[in-house]
Computed example of a mutant assay.
Amino acid sequence: MTDAIHRPTPGRRLRRGKVRGDTITLAHGSGGKAMRDLIDDVFVGAFDNPALAPLEDQARLALADLTRHGDRLAFTTDTYVVDPLFFPGGNIGELAVNGTVNDLAVGGARPLYLSCGVILEEGFPIADLRTIAGAMQRAAAAAGVSIVTGDTKVVPRGSADKLFINTSGVGMIAPGVEIAAERARPGDKVLVNGFIGDHGVAILAARDDLALEVPIESDSQPLNGLVTTLLEACPEVHCLRDATRGGLATVLNEFALAAGACVALDEATLPVREAVRGVSEILGLDPLYYANEGKLVAVVPAACADTALAAMRAHPAGRDAALIGEIRDGPAGRVILHTGFGGGRIVDMLVGEQLPRIC
């Protein structure tokens, strides 16, 4: 975001620039005044914080501030290409922040700092960019993180699809927190923090070619507060994962494969809204594979399952949490869904692309 821009003398704050015009031009990616004005006006104006304020080519973070939160650094990155950019319940900006915060949180880390890389297509409306940047800042504030560095690139019209965002995140993991897919053990219980499939259906409803009218909003939200609450109630949490692309089914298959165990699901306990079920039946899709942007799957020892579930339900991000299954010895590497008709079916990992450009 700050590449090739003249820097002010340390300790001296120059007046911020003001972006001109209504749409992005190639000049806004040139490294000159137009680029500086865009960054000052849209991005620095939204994200301003002490780590970002110097506008260097990197954020400089004090090790003492990091290590007081933990003894291991967690680092993640993700790129967002969702179509459309604006959808019921959110937009690409807050999605990018929440997604990266959640990737850190489900590793047991406390998210602290984010970067923001933006690829803009020539002609993109600056008003929309300002809205997206504002949404990113509000999401960052809600999650308790700061956007401290970034990059902006502009490509010619037709070389990209409006706007892509990359966010990377840094967090710290406290001593004693050990969360990994391979730690699932027979007897463990499987929890999810609420209704699945909302984000996938919200994106489908926002796409003009399907003409769906569904009263569903994206579930995009930060999960770091919920994870903190869960770990306080049940420090022995074995596995955590946010169920984004590939949905709940793919996450559970990853757990089963990593642990060499079987995940047994009870269909009757799966939290799925009736509207999501209805869309799924119309389109021939399975809610287990829909992307979510505010849902996590937790595998916990049976002894603390009730405590963990109660703690999740007491948090705003987990009030609809449910116990949906358990870990069993075998068949190893399989997810089995026990249906309401008394039978069972294998739930494979997602093959191919059920819904493109979903996040």
Rank of each mutant, 00 (worst) to 15 (best):
residue 56 E to L: 14
residue 58 Q to Y: 14
residue 60 R to M: 14
residue 60 R to A: 13
residue 63 L to T: 15
residue 63 L to P: 10
residue 64 A to S: 15
residue 65 D to L: 13
residue 66 L to A: 09
residue 67 T to L: 13
residue 69 H to V: 12
residue 71 D to Y: 08
residue 72 R to N: 10
residue 73 L to N: 05
residue 73 L to Y: 08
residue 74 A to I: 12
residue 74 A to N: 10
residue 74 A to S: 15
residue 75 F to Q: 10
residue 78 D to R: 10
residue 78 D to H: 14
residue 80 Y to E: 06
residue 80 Y to Q: 12
residue 83 D to M: 13
residue 83 D to G: 08
residue 85 L to D: 06
residue 86 F to I: 14
residue 86 F to G: 04
residue 86 F to Q: 11
residue 87 F to Y: 15
residue 87 F to N: 09
residue 89 G to Q: 05
residue 90 G to L: 10
residue 92 I to Q: 06
residue 97 V to D: 04
residue 99 G to Q: 01
residue 100 T to F: 10
residue 100 T to V: 15
residue 100 T to G: 07
residue 104 L to D: 04
residue 105 A to L: 11
residue 106 V to F: 06
residue 107 G to N: 07
residue 110 R to V: 13
residue 110 R to C: 10
residue 111 P to H: 03
residue 112 L to N: 08
residue 113 Y to E: 09
residue 113 Y to T: 05
residue 115 S to I: 12
residue 115 S to G: 14
residue 116 C to H: 08
residue 116 C to T: 10
residue 118 V to K: 00
residue 119 I to V: 14
residue 119 I to R: 11
residue 123 G to K: 01
residue 125 P to A: 12
residue 126 I to K: 03
residue 126 I to C: 03
residue 129 L to P: 00
residue 129 L to Y: 00
residue 131 T to I: 01
residue 133 A to Q: 03
residue 135 A to P: 02
residue 135 A to I: 02
residue 137 Q to Y: 02
residue 139 A to L: 02
residue 141 A to E: 15
residue 142 A to G: 04
residue 143 A to L: 07
residue 144 G to F: 00
residue 146 S to M: 11
residue 146 S to R: 07
residue 147 I to F: 04
residue 147 I to R: 01
residue 148 V to G: 01
residue 148 V to E: 02
residue 148 V to W: 01
residue 149 T to R: 04
residue 151 D to T: 08
residue 152 T to G: 05
residue 152 T to V: 15
residue 153 K to D: 12
residue 153 K to F: 05
residue 156 P to C: 06
residue 156 P to F: 01
residue 156 P to K: 07
residue 156 P to A: 06
residue 157 R to L: 15
residue 157 R to W: 09
residue 157 R to C: 13
residue 158 G to V: 05
